[in-house]
């Protein structure tokens, strides 16, 4: 029993009254779009090399990894006159059925060339089943500056491997297999050590 017990019945109103002066939590969605987490699994994207060639080699590993069978890939051979990707093959048909896709990202993990990644785009709703099967032209990344619409010959190297090693200066020093000290980490350390040694 306290002295202010007689206030108990109105204390609840105090809580409600207090809420009137707090900031509203509502995000005014269509006008204000709060960014998603940076690794949010949204719509897929088929990436390109800096010269515009496609990274997808049509290996179908994404389709095999897909637990919902949402991806359909048909590979084809690159020819000397018609080249879409460095190397031998490219994905001629690439479709993702977003009515099956559960956006789990297993296809991203499976992709050996990082051709397939996910964007943060999530506004996918549509009014027919057909329009939610995204074809290759809808999934391909837009051409940035310096990129050229394939087919065109390889501009950044002689072979497929040159492309894979783009921006990997000093990759020769890195061990191909994990070493005793712990693989990649130690190879990076070795690279840093080599670099600082050069400066001296």
């Amino acid at each position: 029993m306290g002295l202010t017990d007689f206030l108990n019945p109105v204390k609840g109103f105090g809580v409600a009254f207090h809420q009137m002066f707090t900031k509203s939590e509502t995000v005014q969605y269509p006008e204000v779009k709060k960014p998603t987490a940076p690794r949010f699994h949204g719509r897929h994207q088929l990436n390109r090399w800096p010269d515009g060639l496609e990274k997808c080699v049509g290996c179908e590993l994404c389709a095999w990894a897909c637990p919902a069978d949402a991806i359909y890939v048909e590979g084809a051979d690159n020819t000397e006159t018609e080249r879409y990707s460095p190397g031998e093959r490219y994905g001629r048909v690439y479709q993702i059925n977003y009515l099956r896709c559960i956006l789990c990202g297993l296809c991203i993990e499976a992709c050996p060339t990082r051709a397939l990644t996910m964007t943060n785009e999530y506004e996918l709703a549509d009014d027919s089943r057909e329009s939610l099967i995204y074809t290759k032209d809808m999934l391909l990344a837009p051409l940035r500056e310096g990129m050229e619409q394939p087919p065109h010959p390889m501009r950044l190297g002689e072979t497929e491997e040159d492309y894979y090693r783009l921006g990997l200066a000093g990759a020769e020093e890195a061990p191909a297999s994990p070493s005793q000290d712990g693989g990649r980490r130690s190879s990076i350390d070795a690279a840093v050590r080599a670099e600082s040694g050069e400066k001296k």
Partner: peptide, 13 residues
């Protein structure tokens, strides 16, 4: 009328 993909779709979707 409207198909909404996502598993599950976030509330914004």
């Amino acid at each position: 009328d409207i198909y909404l993909p996502g598993c599950p779709p976030r509330p914004e979707m």
